[in-house]
Simulated assay, not measured.
Amino acid sequence: MSSALPARAGVGFKDAYFTAIEESAPAVGFFEIHAENFMSAGGPPHARLTRLRRDYPLSIHGVGLSLGGAQALDRAHLDRVKSLVERYEPAAFSEHLAWSTHGASFLNDLLPLPYDDTTLKHVVAHVDDVQQALGRRILLENPATYLSFESSVYSEIEFLEEIARRTGCGLLLDINNAYVCAVNHGFAAEDYIDAFPMRRVEEVHLAGYTEDIDEAGGRLLIDAHCAPVSMAVWTLYERALSRNGPLATLIEWDRDIPAWPILMAEATHAESLLERRRLSGHDQTRSEDSHDVVA
């Protein structure tokens, strides 16, 4: 079982930030990387990450395992993830509730799933495979989606909770994804946050979105990770914290990355909200049944 991330604000690590981090020793709780960016055997990226790992907890976030795919997992890719996890011993490893492979092709996108029993069987088997290979629990992230399937028989929250119940995995609540989906599919983001099984959540993601117009002229949000966290998402974040107390919180900014002080300002704001929640006395402990597994 992996150790938990600290209930602090963290940021995504980019090579462009390394000098600023070295010079300022920022008071962030942890750094997160995308696994697929560090699958080479060595070189400067690994040297910098090794240096960073000495001083900070690390979260590794996968984007290529295709846990929702109908086909078997790519064992070579899983082996590379395993090597990376063994090398850096992160406090957490997470992946998405999505699929991205078809045959031998990798589609370079995180595609949505029908929430039905057939898909549930595939995802549960894949999560079990990954956890067995890595020798640790993983966290599963709620997706940002732009369409839904009429064949779904579970809500997204029911689907995620059933996966967690059967496999013992934890959950990663991406609040920006929840807001993007709420706008795109026409439901209340507040209801989603209120219904989410917070006792299973071990990490939160916050990010910015871009806005477009769909074919019917309606509002369409894109989970682009290229902008500051919106006020709507900050409000939902406070709502989530009010239910379960402080949680490890990542500021995601992966495109058009800003200057280091701008990213740190986002993390500092998240840290201030976490501290406010601590001082309010709502630093709760997750219930013991949050890691239950059904054989």
Rank of each mutant, 00 (worst) to 15 (best):
R8N: 01
L139Y: 08
E23N: 15
M1P: 09
L247F: 08
T145Y: 04
Y179D: 12
A47W: 05
S105Y: 14
L171T: 02
E141T: 12
F187I: 01
C169E: 02
D109F: 02
R54P: 02
L250T: 01
L173I: 05
V153E: 04
M198G: 03
Y237L: 05
T19K: 15
E238S: 09
S100Q: 06
R277G: 01
V183R: 13
A4R: 09
C181W: 01
P6A: 03
R243I: 02
K121I: 01
R80N: 10
A27F: 00
E95I: 10
P197L: 08
V85K: 12
V130N: 12
G69K: 04
T285W: 04
Q132V: 13
I33T: 07
S3V: 15
L67Y: 03
N37F: 13
L107P: 00
T249D: 05
F196D: 01
R277M: 14
I262M: 12
E32F: 11
D128W: 04
R75L: 14
S287R: 11
R277Y: 02
Y209A: 12
G12Q: 06
I175Y: 06
P114N: 04
A47P: 03
V233S: 14
V204N: 03
F13A: 09
P6L: 09
L65Q: 12
P6H: 11
N177C: 11
A248M: 09
N108S: 15
Y146G: 10
Y154K: 02
V229Q: 00
T235P: 06
E162S: 00
E203S: 15
G62N: 04
H291P: 00
L139K: 00
E211Q: 15
L274P: 01
R53F: 11
L263C: 07
A144R: 06
L171E: 08
F93T: 10
G62Q: 00
G245L: 05
S83D: 14
R53N: 15
L236E: 07
T235Q: 10
V11W: 05
D79H: 08
R80F: 05
R51I: 03
L113A: 10
N184F: 07
S59M: 14
F13Q: 06
F196N: 06
V204F: 13
T119S: 06
D128C: 02
R54N: 13
R219V: 01
W260A: 10
G281H: 10
S2N: 11
F31M: 13
A189W: 05
P246I: 03
D223Q: 12
Y88E: 08
